[in-house]
Amino acid sequence: MKLFFTVVSFYLCILIFINLYRAIYGPDILTRIAAINAIGTKTVMILILIGFIYGRVEMFIDIAIVYALLSFIATIVAAKYFLTRRSIE
C-alpha cells in the first residue's frame, strides 16, 4: 500500500508540473492566479500522502489544514488586488 501511495504522489507531482506550465507561460495574469490556486489544492493532497508514507498522518494533517487556509488567503488577496486596480496591464 505504501508503494501505491508513492505512485499516487508522483502522479500528482506530474500534474503540478503541467499546472506550472500554465502558471509560467499563461497568456494573462488571472490565468496564472487560477493555476497557482489549483497547485495549492494538489499540494494539500500530497502533504496527506506524505503523512501516510511516513506513518505520521496526525502531524501532517495539521500542516495540510494550515496550508489550505494560507493558500486560500493568498489567492483571495491576489484577486482582490486586480479587482481594485481595474486593468490587467
Binding site: L30, I33, N37, T75, A79, F82, L83, R86, I88
Partner: peptide
C-alpha cells in the same frame, strides 16, 4: 469564493 473572486476581477478588468 476563490473562483467567483477571480471571475469578478476579470469582469472588472
Amino acid at each position: 469564493t476563490v473562483t467567483h473572486s477571480i471571475g469578478r476581477a476579470g469582469v472588472s478588468c
